[in-house]
């Protein structure tokens, strides 16, 4: 690979951006600490090399706590997605069910999670259950809404085509509506996945025993001495959200690769 290739590579701008950002961050950190001499400068913009050092020291702890959060969020996510998808199907079958349930589905979204989380935690007194329920609760609505839109997006002529084959109603769902709803379902899932992680972390802030949120809260209380650890937990939390999104995107590529968004790459070669 010569210089020309490196410069024209489509990753080159990304690499430049990331590197540039790191330099600016490190410089700002130094500037705030030694030139401005701001109070608690490292809480505002910590040195990146210090964060990297923290990760090498406490990587395992962060991993274990992150896993606890992520696995509960994932279970809740699956639960919420299943229920959301199921409700979307029921609503698409029957206008009556839609009119009966939809206002409540919307109303449920009006309850602030910040208020709901301690209530759920108070009822079950089990942080795992609370995490799962809140993650599921957050997932449910965007999935139901987008899945319903997907099921409704079917071209009426495509349905008439099925009639002409004398297809049974469940056949129309299986062969036409479900595949046609996949893009909608996945856009719902992609919205919900990072939210489910955030929801699980929120529950942990209410007084759980483990999870990345617990680590976050403790290190916040311990003050400046634990500053780098606090920042590390924030980074891990963000990382879990990104991972959940990328995971869903990957599954979408495998399950529904025929979508217009994925076509350009096919046309290039």
């Amino acid at each position: 690979m010569n210089v020309q290739n490196v410069l024209s590579s489509r990753y080159f701008p990304v690499v430049v951006w990331v590197f540039g950002l790191l330099v600016v961050w490190e410089f700002s950190s130094w500037f705030l600490l030694h030139v401005v001499e701001a109070s608690m400068a490292q809480s505002k913009i910590p040195y990146i090399h210090e964060l990297v050092y923290t990760f090498t020291q406490y990587g395992y702890t962060l991993f274990v706590e992150g896993k606890a959060t992520f696995s509960n969020a994932a279970i809740g996510f699956l639960l919420g997605a299943t229920l959301g998808g199921l409700l979307a199907v029921l609503m698409s079958i029957s206008k009556w069910i839609e009119q009966l349930t939809f206002p409540y589905a919307i109303a449920s979204q009006m309850i602030p999670i910040l208020g709901l989380a301690p209530i759920v935690y108070g009822i079950f007194r089990d942080e795992q259950i609370a995490r799962i329920l809140i993650a599921g609760y957050i997932t449910f609505f965007p999935v139901a809404l987008n899945m319903l839109r997907g099921l409704r997006s079917v071209d009426p002529t495509a349905v008439e085509l099925m009639y002409s084959f004398a297809a049974k109603p469940w056949m129309i769902y299986w062969k036409l509506r479900f595949p046609a709803a996949l893009p909608g379902l996945f856009s719902g899932l992609k919205i919900a996945a990072p939210l489910a992680v955030t929801g699980a972390i929120l529950v942990e802030l209410m007084g759980a025993q483990n999870g990345i949120g617990v680590l976050m809260l403790r290190n916040l209380y311990y003050g400046p001495s634990h500053n780098y650890m606090f920042w590390s937990t924030v980074i891990v939390g963000a990382f879990l959200g990104v991972v959940s999104y990328l995971l869903i995107s990957l599954i979408e590529r495998i399950v529904a690769p025929w979508q217009p968004d994925f076509r350009s790459s096919g046309g290039d070669d």
Binding site: T157, A158, E160, L161, F165, L176, P179
Partner: peptide, 16 residues
């Protein structure tokens, strides 16, 4: 009795 085959104005092929 599936005696019909229909061709519409648009092809209505399933993308997937």
């Amino acid at each position: 009795a599936q005696k019909y085959g229909i061709v519409f104005q648009s092809p209505v092929l399933y993308d997937w």
